[in-house]
Design a protein around this nucleic acid. Structure first.
Lengths: 222, 222
DNA sequence: TCAAAAGTGTTGTCCGTACACCCATGA
DNA sequence: TCATGGGTGTACGGACAACACTTTTGA
């Protein structure tokens, strides 16, 4: 990180959320060099001159997770002069939502200066580099605020899901519990779900009906 | 603006809102040089290495309006590679709310490269430089979204105000009309207003009771 | 036949909305 | 005395919250 302290640098950092093992988790990378060697951090990187901020976030996400077509949202821009030691780095924070089933972690230790990559529950984070603790808190707060007003939760579920799975996602994100009947009534009244003629054949006792999410009232593919 | 195109630059732009003549207005500056000579723009500028983003916005606001202690909120960060001709400038947009009564416009034509400064209704904007039209739309949208959830509207009113003035502010910002009885009932039920033993002595016929806003339930100074 | 999760309705409360008239004052 | 804006209450409907039992299946 040789640089003079005369200029600002600007990065994009991406808080990657998934639901895994019944918990809301974020993808963290462990740094293999100073500053904050061995500390965990959210993935990020510099913005190329040719790309806009969303594209930069998308590229970083692809580099880490191999995933495209992921839900991404800008959260906030952090620019405290002291957030980065020995240089001025302003970062535009994003969050991404991915279905953990799809994920193939992909990282290159030599070029990325990363020692390890893994998931961590948002309620049990290791010691984090920079102001990344704050960024994750902002991200989680925005994710929760988004839940009501959009199609956010579906981004974390497989294409076909049961109402119980959907409710679990809400409960995990909001860290609360909800009444089953009220939840179903509400969801079904929103006209955003298509009832499929398929049932889950999982470990449970009674098979549950599967639904899919209609974005823009298009019919889900069966 | 001598620079190479190899680096990003980062600025803060501030959409300054006020209510004036019954309209929601923004402060715009007319550019006296290229690019976009003669076009109007929202005030902005570079971030100093020693200041964080909020401080930069605060300073820019002070330089333009002479006001301190103003309500400021980060909106969004815009970074399209083409938003600025011939260079890459990423901007962190803020909005500010000020009481127009207090305002003394202050600008220095020679150093600011500004030809003129004036207020414009958000519904009747001149042709704007860069992507500033988009930024103002984002700002107005966020301002409207904030109205319910916080003390936002009070930032645009004098310390003591009548319920009709408050309602007018809401109506102007949301570009709608509201029922007087319902509005008053709602506002009074929120426990955020202190009823004063004072009445407006303005042009109107019957004097109206004045209220003030209790931030954190502190008593307004009389 | 049992265990485990799926599925299903009703009731009360609260909040938002619609709606019209009298009051106090200055000119 | 009149014109102008200030000030007030009620009734309806929709949304949300609380609450418990039956059904279906696999083991």
């Amino acid at each position: 990180m040789q640089r003079e302290t005369k200029t600002h640098e600007i990065t994009v950092d991406v808080v990657i959320f998934t639901i895994k093992k019944g918990k809301l988790q974020v993808l963290l990378v462990q740094r293999s060099k100073e500053p904050f060697i061995n500390k965990w951090a959210i993935p990020g990187g510099f913005i190329r001159l040719s790309e806009n901020l969303d594209e930069a976030a998308k590229r970083l996400l692809y580099e880490k997770s191999n995933l495209k077509d992921v839900y991404l949202e800008q959260i906030y821009t952090f620019g405290d002069p002291l957030r980065y030691p020995n240089s001025r780095v302003i970062t535009v924070a994003y969050f991404a939502l991915i279905r953990s089933e799809n994920l193939v972690l992909k990282f290159d230790k030599s070029t990325d200066n990363i020692k390890d990559v893994s998931w961590h529950s948002v309620y049990d984070l290791p010691s984090l580099a920079f102001d990344h603790q704050t960024i994750i808190e902002y991200a989680a707060q925005k994710l929760r605020a988004d839940l009501d007003h959009s199609s956010t939760a579906f981004q974390l579920l497989p294409q076909k899901f049961t109402l119980t799975e959907l409710q679990n996602a809400y409960e995990i994100i909001l860290n609360t519990t909800m009444d089953k009947r009220n939840f179903r009534k509400k969801m079904l009244s929103l006209d955003i779900l298509t009832e499929l003629d398929e049932y889950s054949k999982t470990q449970s006792k009674r098979p549950a009906r599967l639904y899919c999410f209609n974005e823009q009232s298009s019919i889900c593919k069966s």
